[in-house]
Amino acid sequence: MPRGRPYVDIGQLSRNIRPLEMSDLDHVLEIERGGYSHPWSERVFRDCFRPDYRLWAHTEIGELQAYAVVAHLFDEAHLLNFCVGRAHRNSGVGRQLLRFLVRAAFHEGMVRLILEVRRSNEPAIALYESEGFQMIGERPGYYPGVQQREDALVFALDSMKEH
């Protein structure tokens, strides 16, 4: 994939998903702070607005409900941040956004999507496994914690699988 390639033409893939915009950052930070004990800073999010990243927003009636940050490197996509607002958890919003970003990444020529998830995040692990992701490894002490660091489980989904 050439560097600086624009977002995939999402067309009719989803009426509720669009590229995240810099003007969304206040809402993103609100969701981020409500979802994580160690949230990303505004500066980190701003640094993600670059050609080799894809930032997606799930919205309904103008309300930002979830977002995703995906880095593209050669032929591999890395889901760096995925968060659903508290009021929209267990509603299908997360599944819809995950399915969309998988399709978009594979449509752009990525052959694998990888992600890390906290070992304790059972709902997220269940979602990833139900969508065909396979655990491929662990990263000890990857995440900061309140009292001690927490391990990450590494999951991958290859484009050769049915989606």
Rank of each mutant, 00 (worst) to 15 (best):
R5W: 10
R5V: 05
R5L: 14
R5H: 09
R5Y: 09
P6S: 09
P6K: 03
P6E: 10
Y7A: 09
V8T: 08
V8A: 12
D9V: 06
D9C: 03
I10K: 02
I10Q: 04
I10Y: 08
I10R: 09
I10V: 12
I10T: 11
G11D: 13
L13K: 00
L13V: 03
L13H: 01
L13C: 00
L13N: 00
S14W: 04
S14K: 00
S14E: 00
S14N: 05
R15C: 06
R15A: 13
R15E: 14
R15I: 13
R15V: 14
N16V: 02
N16R: 14
N16P: 02
N16T: 07
I17C: 01
I17R: 01
R18F: 03
R18I: 01
R18N: 01
P19I: 01
P19T: 02
L20S: 00
M22D: 00
S23D: 09
S23C: 08
S23E: 09
D24I: 06
L25Q: 01
D26K: 05
H27Q: 15
L29I: 14
L29G: 08
L29N: 06
L29P: 07
L29E: 08
L29V: 12
E30Q: 15
E30G: 14
E30C: 15
I31L: 11
I31H: 10
E32I: 13
E32A: 11
E32L: 12
R33L: 11
G34T: 11
G34R: 12
G34M: 09
G34L: 13
G35L: 09
G35V: 10
G35M: 10
G35K: 07
G35R: 09
G35Q: 11
Y36E: 10
Y36A: 11
Y36Q: 13
S37F: 13
H38E: 12
H38W: 14
H38T: 11
P39A: 10
P39E: 04
P39M: 09
W40E: 01
W40P: 06
W40N: 04
S41Y: 01
S41R: 08
E42G: 12
E42A: 14
R43V: 12
R43Y: 01
V44M: 15
V44A: 15
V44T: 15
V44R: 11
F45G: 05
F45T: 08
R46V: 10
R46S: 03
D47K: 13
D47F: 05
C48A: 13
F49D: 00
F49L: 03
F49N: 02
R50M: 05
R50K: 12
P51D: 13
D52Y: 07
D52S: 09
Y53R: 05
Y53S: 10
R54P: 06
R54Q: 07
L55G: 03
L55C: 08
L55Y: 05
L55A: 02
W56H: 05
